[in-house]
């Protein structure tokens, strides 16, 4: 196999003339990070609310949360993304749908991707939050109520803060997943890291260099997130609990 390696490709100027190929990669990296972080905020918010609802003593509310989880766990991420991007704007009231379609294409792609990843990951966060709350001794809820807390106050001050401390490790792997899953968004044309990698192959005909660069960047994201989350884990440890000191 004869292949001409050319790592210099990254510093040469792109056909658009305003940046280098490395510049393209970095802008893709930037999009990947912005997308993943904003989707993570949505996922944490929805996941926390739904996770709490799954444990409340109301069939109705816990049922809604269960339907949410099953729907978002049993349809492939790619199909969900296409439904958010291609289908939802058609089903919305005309005014709303049209205002979405009049946005610039990048904004449309980013918005759909962000909401899609947020809801998809939220279903997984929800299950972790539920497991965390259910793993607390039942007496904790009683102790909160016995002090005169209402049920929402008991959740806010007692159950949720403790549950979140317990589920930092599984949340870490969901946080890593959101970066990896964001690569799926290249399929609707969003120029994130994986898409820039493919674009580089098309423009430079140097596939190995391009893919190696992209892969290294994903591995780098992984390492950084893991290091950060290990710090979070250390800070959120509860003294006297397993893993605490």
């Amino acid at each position: 196999m004869s292949y001409n390696w050319n790592w210099g490709i990254f510093v040469s100027t792109t056909p658009t003339g305003d940046t280098t190929y490395l510049g393209w990669m970095l802008s893709g990296l930037q999009t990947t990070i912005a997308l993943s972080l904003s989707a993570w905020i949505i996922a944490l918010a929805i996941g926390s609310i739904m996770g709490v609802l799954r444990t409340v003593p109301s069939r109705w509310l816990s049922g809604i949360a269960a339907v949410y989880v099953e729907a978002f766990r049993n349809i492939p991420l790619l199909v969900q993304l296409f439904i958010w991007y291609f289908v939802l704007p058609e089903l919305l009231p005309a005014a709303l749908g049209n205002s979405f379609k009049q946005m610039n294409p990048t904004a449309q792609q980013f918005l759909s991707s962000m909401v899609c990843l947020g809801f998809f990951t939220g279903a997984r966060v929800c299950e972790q939050v539920r497991a965390g709350i259910n793993s607390l001794p039942p007496g904790q809820k009683n102790a909160g109520l016995a002090l005169g807390f209402t049920l929402p106050q008991t959740y806010r001050h007692v159950l949720v803060p403790m549950a979140f401390r317990l589920i930092v490790p599984p949340l870490t792997s969901e946080f890593l997943n959101i970066f990896k899953n964001s690569a799926v968004c290249s399929t609707i044309g969003l120029l994130e890291l994986a898409a820039q990698g493919r674009q580089l192959v098309d423009y430079t005909a140097q596939p190995y260099e391009s893919f190696i660069a992209v892969t290294v960047m994903y591995v780098g994201i992984n390492v950084i997130v893991m290091t950060l989350m290990r710090k979070v884990e250390r800070r959120s440890r509860v003294p006297g609990y397993i893993g605490g000191k």
């Binding site: 904790q140 009683n142 102790a143 909160g144 109520l145 016995a146 005169g148 807390f149 509860v238 609990y241």
Partner: peptide, 21 residues
């Protein structure tokens, strides 16, 4: 108003149930 009532009925549990965090 159960929370109101409970707020001035003290209770102590078998497993203490202090809030660990």
């Amino acid at each position: 108003d159960l929370p109101g009532l409970r707020s001035h009925v003290g209770m102590v549990f078998q497993n203490f149930e202090l809030f660990p965090h």
